[in-house]
């Protein structure tokens, strides 16, 4: 369960304030698949980053399973990101010096999980994204779509309750994009993972349980309101 209260982010650039996100109040239930659409610059990435513990809100609160995440210290917040949240970014986010399998295992480096179990789970996840045959490949040897699938496997490796995906298919071709979204839906059903997906593709956004529309820092359309 994710709850935000008056979530606001103002960037100060020079002597100008940019209101990236303004007073967003959201409730996202467990297992819900929520999509967010909106123009570029409407604040989607900033909103996702505040929910995921990547940037501190100027005002307002984020609760993940009842925990006020921005009241946590760096250690606890990092642990929460590590265990409860999986991120999928809009660009290739793999570490170029590590193989696909090592990239998928990476979150375990920062957790208490047993290395052996993680290795097994990492292989399972690569299997899930249909990349079992490429586990020893380096990111530079993989196509864009394959890289994104490795990133998805990495986001899943610690069995997070929440996946935050920021335009994860923006740079992929149509077919691949559809495959990725179908994979998300499958994961959502199979693992009961909550999804918050930012996308430009309205067609894909429609597949979600709930579609939010953002504009100029505000959520202007939410079926639940």
């Amino acid at each position: 369960m994710i709850v935000t209260e008056n979530l606001t982010k103002i960037y100060r650039v020079g002597d100008r304030d940019i209101e990236a996100v303004i007073d967003v109040g959201l409730r996202i239930s467990d297992n819900e698949f929520v999509s967010i659409v909106g123009h570029s610059g409407s604040g989607k990435t900033t909103l996702l980053s505040m929910i995921g513990g990547l940037t501190r809100p100027t005002k307002g609160k984020v609760f993940v399973d009842g925990i006020d995440i921005w009241s946590l210290g760096d250690k606890e917040l990092s642990k929460l990101r590590n265990e409860k949240i999986g991120f999928i970014f809009q660009f290739s986010s793999l570490i170029p010096t590590l193989t696909a399998l090592e990239n998928v295992m990476l979150p375990a480096t920062f957790s208490q999980n047993k290395k052996k179990e993680v290795a097994i789970r990492a292989e399972e996840m690569l299997d899930l994204v249909e990349l079992s045959h490429r586990i020893d490949s380096y990111p530079s040897q993989l196509s864009g779509g394959e890289q994104r699938r490795v990133a998805i496997a990495r986001a899943l490796v610690n069995k997070p309750k929440i996946i935050l995906a920021d335009e994860p298919t923006g740079d992929l071709d149509h077919e691949t994009e559809k495959d990725v979204i179908d994979l998300f839906l499958k994961i959502n059903k199979e693992f009961n993972t909550t999804f918050l997906l930012v996308t430009h593709n309205i067609e894909l956004a429609m597949k979600a349980d709930r579609k939010l529309v953002m504009d100029q820092g505000k959520i202007i359309e939410d079926p639940n309101d």
């Binding site: 990547l54 250690k75 990101r81 570490i95 979150p107 480096t109 920062f110």
Partner: peptide, 14 residues
Amino acid sequence: ELGILRAIGADRNA
């Protein structure tokens, strides 16, 4: 990359 490491759970110390 360091930002990504932080996102997937590395704390400042790590």
